[in-house]
Each structure stands twice: as structure tokens, then as C-alpha cells.
């Protein structure tokens, strides 16, 4: 019961943060909303039996990505200030999104998912299994991800710096 309440709270937190982030005019508030959502999502992961992924979520997303965004915001002064906010665009895109949401919700509600009899045991969720999977079956994925990350970071640095040299 308590678990249900807690997870419901996390869900509401995630959804509220998302909607706040989508609609609030100010950019910084938007990032704050994103942070709230990420936090809620981390709780959901926790509930879904994956503390490691939840930890990663908090570490990388909240600790890394959100902070990087805020830094970027601070580096470019005008980004921080409130931008022109077109009401009509928000309304139109909201209509489109709600349409999408309604259709998808109907699909979700009407679909019969092949559920497992009972959730897997805690042993199957451990960090070891993840590490094992990454290093054996999914090692190409792991390596690819690593390369991708390093390339992305190097490229990001190069792009930003080359332009800096010019200016």
C-alpha cells in the first residue's frame, strides 16, 4: 500500500515535472522541471527493481546532463532570459500532442500484453548480472557506447573550441 502510494507520488512528480517543463516560459524553470521529472523517473526505476539504473539516472541525468544544461545557459547570457513565447504555437502543439496521447492511451488500454506470471527474482536484477551482460553478450553494445561517448565528447570540444579560435 505504502509502496503504491510512493510510486504514485513519483509518477505524479515525473508527469508534473514533464508538463511543467513543457509549458513554463522561462528556460531555467524548464530545466528545473526536467530535473524533477528525472528524479521521478529514477523513483520509478527503483520501484521496477533496478536500483543501479536509478542510481545511474540520478548520477548521469540529474548530476551531469541537467547541470551541463544550466552551465550552457549561464555561458550564453541571453538564453537565460525569458524568450518570446507564442501562445498559439503552444496551443496548437498541445492539441497535436493530446491527440497523440489520446490515440496512444487508447492503444495501451486496449492491448493485451503477454505478462509474465510473476516478476523475476531479485537475484536476476543485480548489478552483477548487468555487468556480466555488458561484458559478455552485449559487449559490442558496451564498446560501441563507449566509443560513441568519447567521440561525442571530443567532437563537442572540437566544435566549440574551433569556433572559439575564430572569434
Amino acid at each position: 500500500m505504502i509502496a503504491t502510494l510512493v510510486i504514485a507520488a513519483f509518477m505524479i512528480l515525473a508527469m508534473a515535472g514533464a508538463i511543467y517543463a513543457a509549458l513554463v516560459p522561462h528556460t531555467l524553470h524548464c530545466i528545473i522541471g526536467l530535473g524533477l521529472t528525472l528524479f521521478g523517473v529514477a523513483g520509478i526505476y527503483l520501484y521496477l527493481g533496478s536500483p543501479f539504473v536509478a542510481a545511474m539516472q540520478i548520477l548521469i541525468y540529474i548530476g551531469g546532463i541537467s547541470v551541463a544544461m544550466v552551465f550552457a545557459l549561464m555561458l550564453s547570457v541571453s538564453l537565460a532570459k525569458k524568450m518570446k513565447h507564442s501562445e498559439i504555437k503552444v496551443i496548437l502543439s498541445s492539441i497535436a500532442a493530446i491527440l497523440f496521447l489520446a490515440v496512444m492511451a487508447r492503444l495501451i488500454m486496449t492491448t493485451e500484453f503477454p505478462l509474465r506470471e510473476e516478476p523475476a527474482g531479485a537475484a536476476a536484477w543485480g548489478v552483477e548480472q548487468i555487468g556480466h551482460g555488458f561484458l559478455t553478450t552485449y559487449s559490442p553494445l558496451f564498446i560501441g557506447l563507449a566509443i560513441c561517448l568519447s567521440v561525442a565528447i571530443i567532437a563537442a570540444v572540437l566544435v566549440a573550441r574551433r569556433e572559439a579560435d575564430k572569434s
Binding site: 502543439s93 497535436a96 491527440l99 497523440f100 496512444m104 487508447r106 492503444l107
Partner: peptide, 15 residues
């Protein structure tokens, strides 16, 4: 936006 609408419509009709 148009992509979203199209996907929504496709979802509606196919679903």
C-alpha cells in the same frame, strides 16, 4: 508537429 499528427492518425486507424 505534422509527423506527430500523422503518427496519431495512423495509430488511430491501425489500432
Amino acid at each position: 508537429a505534422s509527423g506527430v499528427v500523422v503518427v496519431a492518425l495512423a495509430g488511430y486507424f491501425l489500432g
